[in-house]
Amino acid sequence: MLERALEITNDSTLMAIFADLTRVEYAVIEGQDNNVIMEMRPSKYRPQFTIYISDKYRQLSNNGAIFVVIHELYHIYRYNKGFSNNDEDHAFMVKSSMYREWVRKALGLSQHSFALDYLVYSGTYESPVYQRLSYEKKKTVNSFCKSYELPY
């Protein structure tokens, strides 16, 4: 899944990060009470990125799994550009044409799919960018996420 996601981003910096085994470590977490599927935590020291993968990740569909990886790659992309605020990253995700294109390719959607306007909010539920939406829009986000099997 990671390989496919990196291919979709076509970003040489991200590819270099994941090619270097000392920069990324993975930790599988099981049986936690919360509903966190995956989380990337950066560090000033090596390994630079720790990716926590919950056992809930295994229950996702193909669409859901690739989406979550793409989402985390965007966090790493932003961190590499000097930004490390989760909520700000989420705010950028919903308006970034690059992220939108990554998601579009990951889900095999057409260039002008309206569904993308809603799908990009998947994973941002605890951030102000989602919380500020009207109830009507929040529910439409949920509806499209369920249709395309993304976490909601």
Binding site: N35, I37, Y125
Partner: peptide, 8 residues
């Protein structure tokens, strides 16, 4: 149905 929102 009800569910717990999934975050990542």
């Amino acid at each position: 149905e009800t569910k717990i929102p999934e975050v990542f």
